[in-house]
């Protein structure tokens, strides 16, 4: 049985997706789409392959010509994340919730790492890989943990490939990741402004605006950036569905990515995955503008230092000693 075009639920969904809308009509549209979708389900009417092919082509076309994320209005941001969600459901049959939450007011994120407490268990690395949907094929990791000899501080002198039982006596452990520099060399280098520092201090990449020249990677003195040399692969059952446009969403091949302080979590008031996962409590994260935060306590009462201070990059990542 063919439905009349106007009543076709698939057609309705498309109309909703393409119509420019404000927040209210958007919410209304979502409810219509949900209704239409459930109608389609109950009717057992599976959209035919040719129709979704057309829709996919249209969505990809719109995605190709979209603006830099920073130039989008909040409405355009919502449209693009809806398109990305729809594309994920067409291409990978994945039900994702991609967010576009703006930075919180009066928040500047900072991070501290306790080198006297870390014991090199690498729970943080595992949690980060899982949370941020990092490529399992090339084994991409944002966090590096180094086993250090006493008397050294620069991770460059440590062993970043250790594979044995930890902790080892007379060694200590230190970690690196993107330091979200206030004076970031990477954002200065980017020829298309595809990477920038958000008002809450997080250095982000617009994966769809990046052209993949890798100049930022050459400019980073901390090895904080990773490139998608091929198409990233994450087993479907392991995908973290709660995502952010600037965070853990699927990265296309040929684009730069990096630690975002788990922007999809921290902008909703949660802790980054690495902080939550750390079994020794070596990782401290919080709002530098809040005088009562733990990070401020650490900066005030502990002996802290930063990596390669002499470069003037002003990282928002401190190391400290108990």
């Amino acid at each position: 049985m063919r439905l009349h075009k106007k009543d076709d639920p698939k057609h309705l969904i498309q109309e909703v997706l393409e119509k420019p809308s404000n927040r209210r009509s958007f919410l209304k549209g979502v409810s219509i789409a949900a209704a239409a979708g459930s109608a389609a389900l109950t009717a057992g009417c599976i959209p035919d392959a040719e129709g979704t092919g057309l829709e996919e082509a249209r969505l990809r076309w719109q995605e190709f010509f979209k603006k830099n994320y920073r130039l989008m209005s909040q409405e355009e941001k919502e449209q693009t994340v809806r398109r990305l969600e729809r594309l994920a459901s067409i291409q990978d049959q994945a039900q994702l919730q991609i967010g576009s939450e703006p930075p919180l007011e009066k928040v500047l994120f900072g991070y501290a790492f306790n080198i006297s407490r870390c014991e090199g268990f690498m729970e943080c690395v595992t949690a980060c890989v899982k949370e941020n949907n990092l490529d399992r094929k090339s084994n991409t990791q944002y966090i590096r943990i180094f086993e250090m000899e006493p008397g050294q501080l620069d991770p460059g002198t440590g062993d970043g490939q250790f594979y044995h039982k930890v902790p080892v006596d007379h060694k200590f452990y230190t970690g690196t990741q993107c330091f979200h520099c206030e004076n970031a060399p990477c954002t200065k280098a980017c020829p298309t402004r595809a990477t920038w520092k958000e008002p809450d201090g997080i250095v982000v990449v617009d994966y769809d605006w990046c052209i993949g020249c890798r100049y930022c990677q050459a400019a980073c003195p901390y090895y904080g950036r990773r490139f998608n040399w091929g198409q990233s692969e994450v087993p479907k059952e392991e995908v973290t569905p709660k995502q952010h446009y600037l965070g853990n969403r699927k990265r296309p091949k040929g684009k730069m990515e990096k630690c975002t302080f788990c922007i999809q979590r921290t902008r909703k008031g949660r802790l980054p995955a690495c902080v939550e996962a750390c079994p020794t409590g070596s990782r401290v994260f919080g709002n530098l503008l809040d005088p009562d935060s733990e990070i401020r306590y650490v900066l005030k009462h502990k002996k802290v230092f930063r990596m390669r201070e002499e470069l003037g990059t002003d990282p928002k990542f401190w190391y400290f000693i108990d």
Binding site: N68, P191, R193, D208, W209, I211, G212
Partner: peptide
């Protein structure tokens, strides 16, 4: 330069007007 780009189809992001040209900050620009 073109073959070295990860996203050659996005090379138009460099063209002032339709793209964003990070000038004068980026030496690549």
């Amino acid at each position: 330069i073109l073959v070295d780009l990860g996203g050659p189809l996005q090379a138009w992001h460099l063209i002032p007007g339709i793209g964003i040209f990070n000038f004068p900050s980026s030496i690549l620009a």
